[in-house]
Design a protein around this nucleic acid. Structure first.
Lengths: 157, 157
DNA sequence: ACTACACTGTAAGGCACTTTACAGTAAATA
DNA sequence: TATTTACTGTAAAGTGCCTTACAGTGTAGT
């Protein structure tokens, strides 16, 4: 496992920024650009990233509670509560109290959201077409495999 | 990994979340976990992500202006100004006015920052050791290649 | 039943970043 | 030179998320 000192040339940069740093920066840059491009392309619908991600998860699993959403979205419960507040103002979702647990809200999509999702789907597909240009299926499987192992590695305490 | 509704066959999820969605989510998850782990591990030094990233860039290129830093860090100039304000309060950097352009500040590391950087280096290396477990050099080169092409793809307007 | 503990969502305040508008300075052009 | 245009950094207000603390509700142990 190289790094630590894979400085290829001279100068402070070589001492401080390793190949692994650069790889991680690259990963961050790709994901950041993806987020920004998609954020921009859904701006026309007046949605923030958290809002459209919330809608996508609720489409997959109707009736999720705020705590469940927080875990899936990797946000705090308070943040999800705020997002749901706004989505409710926009008439995109509604809170329904659960029958058997009066502590929780179950969140459901409203018709306006169901109409919106295919449009978000189209925006995402357009971005992906750009992203995946000249990339074959095998390469994507390798990418998925590497990232999956990294994810697992980072999980291990 | 299973959750609620990892229904793999039918159901809304199959219609809405594609393989590419999942790959993008995976990329985001790996980078998010990396950021969080490193944020936590440098918390002991009282630095935020933007602060340590700023120090790293200044180490590589002393005397950068705030606009240059903003471009490299992908932040707005105002945000960089605020970060520099705090780093200056911490005596980690100082603003020096440029000789030939009285509009700009050139930012330089102070001794305290230079002492700090090797410690950050050690923290990063520890995280990378976890991240790269069981990953060989070839695989990393493929990863780098794929991501570099994706980055270029996203650049093309 | 009573008690202690755990869980869900909310309120309040803080932080990092953004957006917008602006003053000061430099560079380009008439 | 005078005027316009472009660039650098700052100020103020807004946004989204977080942390902390809390009230309400469920659950387990006695």
């Amino acid at each position: 496992m190289m790094m630590q000192s894979d400085q290829t040339a001279a100068g402070p940069a070589a001492k401080f920024l390793t190949e692994t740093d650069q790889l991680v920066f690259l990963m961050e840059e790709v994901t950041r650009r993806l987020r920004r491009i998609f954020d921009t392309s859904v701006e026309q619908f007046g949605l923030t990233r958290t809002q459209w991600r919330t809608l996508a998860y609720l489409y997959r699993t109707p009736g999720m509670t705020q705590t469940e959403l927080a875990r899936e979205l990797e946000l705090e419960r308070a943040s999800v509560g705020q997002a749901i507040d706004r989505l409710e103002e926009l008439s995109l979702v509604e809170r329904r109290s659960a029958l058997n647990d009066r502590r929780v809200w179950q969140i459901h999509l409203m018709p306006a959201a169901v109409e919106l999702l295919p449009k978000l789907r189209a925006e995402a597909d357009a971005v992906y077409t750009r992203l995946l240009a000249e990339t074959d299926k095998l390469e994507l499987e390798q990418l998925r495999g590497t990232l999956t192992r990294m994810q697992a590695n980072l999980d291990r305490i």
